[in-house]
Amino acid sequence: MWLTQSSIGRKVIMSVTGIALILFLTFHGCMNLVALFSRDAYNTICEMLGANWYAVAATVGLGALVVLHFVYAFILTLQNRRARGASRYAVTDRPGKVEWASQNMFVLGVIVVLGLLLHLWDFWYNMMFQELIGATGQAHHLAADGYHWIEQTFANPCKTAVYVVWFAAIWFHLTHGFWSALQTLGLNGKIWFNRWKVIGNVYVTLLMLMFVVVAIYFAACGGACCTGCC
């Protein structure tokens, strides 16, 4: 199977899973924005994404994408280290053209995954997971109240800071990942190179701003001012 057996095939796996995850983030970001306006609307969405069969299936799919993306990143990195050889340069100089992010995708990826684990603990464990194990009482009640968990999480300033750092890491990861994914699929060229870079940077910046705005908003006024002043 060329997807797993060839270098370009393995990169295609990274590219396709990466693009799928960017699309997921786009959906996630849009959904978050709803929380800025209405608690009920947001919680309705949360309910739809509870332990329903389609939501669970999508979650499993999503998990598979992340695992695939991560596992192949790991395999590629190992192979690349081997290809680099045992001896290292004594002096190295990064040419101006080379983005910092492009050379540190794996490190950024690890930070992203660590952040993801925290995020799953903060939200998914308290929500879909509780429904799946059939929790009762308070836990059951709060499992559908996504809004509550947002308030809870960002009430803690340390956690907010951690989340913002996490978003920054994702931003770095995606500024390179966006055009790199298209390059790997062959959808690039001399002219489109700069276009894709601009499009990618704008898109990824807007995308991550959606997340940052929500985090800071809830950190600043804990959601209380939403119903009050908006």
């Binding site: 990169k11 690349n80 050379q103 390179h176 790997t184």
Partner: peptide, 9 residues
């Protein structure tokens, strides 16, 4: 040889 990660070096 290794896998290309589009670093442009």
């Amino acid at each position: 040889f290794g896998n290309c990660t589009n670093t442009r070096a």
